[in-house]
Write a protein that binds this DNA or RNA. Structure first.
Length: 224
DNA sequence: CCAGACGTTGTT
DNA sequence: GTCTGG
DNA sequence: CCAGACGTTGTT
DNA sequence: GTCTGG
C-alpha cells in the first residue's frame, strides 16, 4: 500500500536528478506529505517523453471510462496497482505494457499496527534522497467537456522483511527502482517477464525507517 | 443477451 | 473496451 | 477531495 | 448539516 508519499525537494533538484525539464508553466513546490485522496498533481517521467517532467494526477483513470462520475469512482481505487495481477486487470493491462512511468519520491509513510493502535513511519533510502517508484499512467478524455486528464498509479509488490514489520497488516510496499534500472523501465521493448523482474521488493538494507508524529496526518494539514 | 464491473486498503 | 454474472 | 450515509437486528 | 469511506 502506498497512499502517503513525499517529494520534499525543489524543481531544480528534480531536473538535475532526472536530466529532464519541467514545462515552463509548472509551479512545482516541495511536497512534504502528499495524500492519495487529494488526487494531487505529482511529477512523473513517462516512457513517451522522458526529456520532460510532467505533472499527472494521482489515481489512474482507464481510457475506456465513459463519464466523469465513473472516473471519479474508479480513480479512488487505482492509487496503487498490484504488479502480480496488473497484466490481467482491465484497468491496468494496457498501461503496464505501453504506459510506464517513474514516480519521483523522497520517502513514503506506512502504518504499523500494534494491539489495534497505529504508528506511522517515514521510509526513505539511505543513499539517495530522490528515488523512483515504478508507475503506470493513462490519458482520459471527458467526452462531455473535452477535458483531458493525465493520471497515474503506483505499482506495489510484496513487502521486504523491513516493510513486513512496518506495514504488518497488508505486507505490501511500492515498487522501487534502482536508479540504474530507470531507463530500462521506460524502454518500449520489455517483455512481461522483463517487467515483472524489475518489480521485485527493494533491498531492505538500502532502506531506513523511523516513526513520525500522528500530527502529520491530521486531515486539515494535507487536504485542500 | 445485456447490465455492470473494471480496484485497493483504511490516520484523526 | 472487454469480461463476467445473472 | 466528494459521494453517500445518516440504523438495528440477526435468517439462509 | 456533518461525518466517513473510498
Amino acid at each position: 500500500m502506498c497512499f502517503h508519499n513525499a517529494l520534499s525537494v525543489k524543481a531544480q533538484d528534480l531536473e538535475h536528478r532526472y536530466k529532464a525539464k519541467f514545462n515552463k508553466d509548472s509551479h512545482f513546490e516541495p511536497i512534504y506529505h502528499g495524500y492519495a485522496f487529494g488526487f494531487m498533481l505529482w511529477p512523473v517521467i513517462t516512457n513517451k517523453n522522458s526529456k520532460y517532467i510532467q505533472e499527472f494526477n494521482w489515481g489512474l483513470i482507464p481510457s475506456w471510462v465513459k463519464t466523469k462520475n465513473e472516473a471519479q469512482k474508479i480513480r479512488s481505487c487505482t492509487f496503487n496497482a498490484q504488479v502480480e495481477t496488473a497484466f490481467e486487470k482491465p484497468s491496468f493491462r494496457n498501461a503496464i505494457k505501453t504506459k510506464r512511468c517513474l514516480i519521483p519520491s523522497t520517502g513514503f509513510f506506512e502504518w504499523q499496527t500494534i494491539k489495534s493502535k497505529k504508528y506511522p513511519y517515514f521510509i526513505s533510502l539511505k543513499e539517495q534522497q530522490i528515488f523512483s517508484m515504478a508507475g503506470l499512467w493513462e490519458e482520459w478524455i471527458d467526452k462531455q467537456t473535452g477535458e483531458i486528464l493525465q493520471t497515474f498509479s503506483i505499482l506495489t509488490t510484496t513487502a521486504n522483511p523491513l516493510m513486513e514489520k512496518i506495514h504488518n497488516t497488508k505486507k505490501r510496499m511500492p515498487v522501487i527502482l534502482a536508479s540504474e534500472l530507470e531507463t530500462e523501465w521506460l524502454s518500449q521493448t520489455l517483455t512481461n517477464d522483463n517487467i515483472l523482474a524489475l518489480c521485485q521488493p527493494y533491498n531492505e538494507n538500502l532502506m531506513q525507517a523511523h516513526t513520525v508524529s500522528k500530527l502529520y496526518f491530521n486531515r486539515d494539514k494535507f487536504l485542500h
